[in-house]
Design a protein around this nucleic acid. Structure first.
Lengths: 341, 341
DNA sequence: CTGAAAGCGCTTACAG
DNA sequence: CTGAAAGCGCTTACAG
């Protein structure tokens, strides 16, 4: 028998009602259907090569074991960026471990070519049991609607909404920056400056907060330098012996300039990057040349974030309540931090 | 109104039947429903924030604009390999352009942890309109069943089945190898040898066929060397001035050995790789160290193959007949081929 | 214990 | 022109 086979067809062959076929297929205790009937149905099942239609099952109320992945940008970018990869790796691993399939929402919204959750009246995500959302773009209106619909979703990256609780998995920039400060302190540094960037995004805000908290704890006056020019930045950092730096470009610039002045890293000056190179920069029109330096830094645990998001989503689908989580970053010792000499 | 809103609920609010709501939503010519009724329905639609349930729509017979992607191995591998990437890139681009979402089948089969299409009686792919399959693993039984079911699918990589026509997109190793031979010929080479590998996979068979055809065309006796040891291989190649090589490892070995003997590449000896480094090797337990040589070679057009597979799949879903396609490879001039001196 | 009926949300052929 | 009925494939509460 070719093409689609339905329970009804199987039933006709076996000489039973369609419902019996379903019972044989899903019967919890195998006590419901008489052995003889069961035998005939199983025979017909085999001979027809019946396969269940998930759409029908899902419509009836059962879950599909499908998790959506929605990204505002393309998932397999060709550029250097490719910063989704580690997230997706974690998502896929966890989904596979938990027995879920992944639905990638790739079809574009009509508007400006930018992807969107809602197309007209349709919530595209609905076909999945729940959805992981990622990407830097943030549409508050869509977010609010998602919350209102009570559709299960988890964001990767901190996301807040006035319309209600949003589940997300973020990286703990505050704690990680504190950790780096403490690390420098243990290495004997007593003048530790923060080279920040002129932005007010959450990661930047959080790094500053972490830095300030750590400085306060050691009763030191925070020294936050927001400066584009490496030369000026280094001058403003004064006699600091350790620099916590937010941007790879700035770190490269400062290090290069310092070395022209006979200041060696890490012998005379320790430098630590606060996170991987910023995806914002990587995706920008001016790609930052890859630095060969083995920077001391902390790493955003992207893979774990992906896995965690999937776990949270599964809980949500099962009826759990939204919650948010910040994951610690792992410190990479690297070659640009050393004990104060 | 929170949670799921159905057409029935909207209808009740608007004081019409559920079918009218559907008509307002999908009405082809806007002539079917009276303006006043339409207005009331649209009002109710807005106030409730109704979103269509794709499952219901699909069940009713419409397509769901979902294409499956099934791989026998993990899709986002962490290892060096990652040879799915270019395929996926093409698949995603084309799917997005055509307005399809992608369903990644990640949940594992029960058996040995290896993924499989059929789990018991269920064809898991069925939830998608059709499916792109990729991966080196090949299960003839599953393939036969897929064909028999008339489920629309397209393989990436040549795949034949006795059970019927299989759609696939492959790389044209025969033509590409011929092209390389002709290229060497134009450069003045008259003794062109093929360094093959001791395998009988389709790509190897095809490369040999292409090589032989080209040699025949120029009335040259083919010289095919199948040899593991670079030293022996080079000796067997005799006074050939151009070598077409199947494996990167062998190419590296031969080049290194040749240079110890004072034979320079490409001055004294031209070498061309027949394809990118073999994924088989990359995925093996003994990863081949990445060669720094800018090899002259032809490249498997993985991205295009992915895109083409999606296009073919969409045709298949729309009722087209299975067909197979071989895509030409692009020649990369590289630095290991030169005119005969 | 066994099996027929109701209904999930939707679209469209069909009757008024 | 307009709108109510049938039915897509499935599961499970419910009646016999």
């Amino acid at each position: 028998m070719a093409g689609r086979v339905t329970q009804a067809q199987v039933a006709r062959i076996a000489g039973v009602s369609q419902a019996i076929v379903s019972l044989v297929l899903n019967g919890s205790d195998s006590v419901r259907v008489s052995p003889e009937t069961r035998r005939r149905v199983e025979e017909a099942l085999r001979s027809t090569g019946y396969t269940v239609d998930i759409m029908g099952r899902r419509l009836r109320g059962k879950t599909n074991q499908i998790l959506g992945v929605f990204t505002y940008e393309s998932v397999f970018p060709s550029g250097v960026a490719d910063f989704y990869r580690p997230f997706l790796l974690g998502i896929e691993e966890e989904a596979e471990a938990r027995g879920f399939d992944l639905l990638l929402f790739t079809s574009p919204g009509r508007k400006d070519g930018r992807r969107r959750v809602y197309e007209g009246e349709t919530n595209r995500l609905r076909i999945a049991d729940g959805c992981v959302l990622l990407g830097r773009h943030n549409d508050p209106a869509e977010l609010a609607r998602l919350v209102e619909e009570k559709f299960p979703f988890v964001f990767i990256g901190r996301r807040e909404s006035p319309s209600g609780a949003v589940s997300y998995v973020g990286a703990d920039y505050v704690a990680s920056t504190k950790d780096v400060y403490e690390w420098m302190w243990r290495l004997g540094h007593r003048k530790i400056a923060l080279l920040s960037v002129p932005e007010e995004h959450e990661p930047t805000v959080d790094r500053r907060a972490g830095y300030q908290a750590a400085a306060r704890r050691h009763r030191k006056t925070p020294l936050i330098v927001v400066e584009d020019d490496p030369e000026v930045a280094l001058r403003k950092a004064g006699d600091a012996t350790a620099l916590l730096v937010e941007s790879t470009a700035m770190a490269d610039g400062v290090k290069a300039y310092a070395e022209t002045r006979g200041i060696e890293v890490p012998k005379d000056l320790s430098m630590v990057l606060l996170g991987d190179p910023d995806p914002t920069q990587r995706l920008s029109a001016h790609p930052v040349p890859r630095s060969d330096t083995d920077w001391s830094m902390f790493r955003i645990p992207r893979r774990q974030m992906g896995a965690r998001a999937v776990r949270m989503l599964i809980e949500l689908v099962a009826g759990g309540r939204p919650k948010s989580v910040l994951l610690p970053c792992e410190i990479h010792e690297g070659a640009t931090a050393a004990a104060r000499n």
